[in-house]
């Protein structure tokens, strides 16, 4: 059974990966290169193309102007491939998590996958972004890579805890009325969205880009990652229905017992 789940998850990852690869090819690659080039055109001399920071007097700032080890074509192709593999990777993790956690997720079968996808999106993307928002090319970072990675991992854990708390709150209160459950489930997430950005410093700045451009870039990152999760859950549901039409209506529990 776990193998069936993994198979569906990887297949769903392939579907989402194709879509995300197309997005990388037609939207993200040209946009990233455009942003990169505009900043180089009116770039100042102190923004040397090396890793050794720049002459701003802020030694701890890490500057982002150092990607000339490979050609633009290579970058574009590898970025497309990475996007596809990223979705496949998420699909595999999603399937394994769904296999283990499915009994603990609320809702009917077609909804459980979306609940888990939402929890995944909140854990993997949204929570880390509250402190480390998506950075457009040319961003200046307050912290070093090592500390950012540590923050990132810690925030993924926080996101998972908040998602679990939200689902637990829903399950406890939804017996009275589903709407109360949804409201209770929204509380932990809303609290996190409100508290975390307000107690953490701004660690990413874009001194050379307009704020509207940065907002648009971030909105694209948020929407494209959310789309990956929706595609994963939707494709997984479709594959599950296709594999087992009889149990699609009232759950896969029957399959589970007959296969025992």
């Amino acid at each position: 059974m776990i193998v069936d789940y993994l198979q569906r998850g990887i297949l769903a990852g392939v579907v989402a990966g194709l879509a995300y690869g197309m997005y990388m090819a037609f939207v993200a690659n040209p946009l990233s290169e455009y942003l990169h080039d505009t900043q180089h055109e009116h770039g100042h001399d102190e923004h040397g193309h090396d890793d050794h920071g720049h002459g701003h007097g802020h030694g701890e700032h890490v500057h982002e102007h150092a990607e000339h080890a490979v050609s633009e074509t290579t970058t574009a192709l590898v970025s497309i491939g990475s996007g596809a593999l990223w979705a496949i990777f998420l699909g595999g993790l999603f399937a394994l998590a769904l296999y283990v956690l499915e009994p603990a997720l609320p809702g009917p079968d077609g909804i459980k996958t979306y609940v888990l996808a939402g929890a995944g999106f909140i854990s993997v993307s949204v929570t880390p972004w509250l402190v480390l928002p998506p950075a457009a090319p040319g961003a200046e970072q307050l912290y070093s890579i090592e500390s950012r990675l540590a923050i990132y991992v810690a925030l993924i854990a926080l996101g998972a805890v908040v998602s679990a708390a939200s689902i637990a709150a829903y399950r406890r209160t939804a017996t009275r009325h589903p709407a109360i459950g949804v409201a209770a489930g929204a509380v932990p997430i809303a609290a996190m969205l409100a508290v975390v950005p307000s107690i953490t410093p701004t660690v990413v700045t874009h001194p050379e880009l307009s704020s509207a451009l940065v907002s648009a870039y971030r909105a694209l990152a948020v929407l494209s990652q959310a789309a990956i999760w929706v595609l994963l859950a939707g494709t997984f549901n479709w594959l599950q229905r296709r594999a087992d039409p009889a149990t699609a209506v009232d759950g896969s529990h029957e399959t589970l017992t007959t296969k025992q």
């Binding site: 990388m24 993200a28 080890a69 590898v78 970025s79 497309i80 457009a136 948020v222």
Partner: peptide, 20 residues
């Protein structure tokens, strides 16, 4: 590694993955 890292540049920015 810098070479692999740089080649994924556009993806890392577009996906909002922090390790760059």
């Amino acid at each position: 590694e810098p070479l692999a890292h740089d080649a994924m540049h556009n993806f890392r920015h577009a996906a909002g993955i922090t390790c760059h």
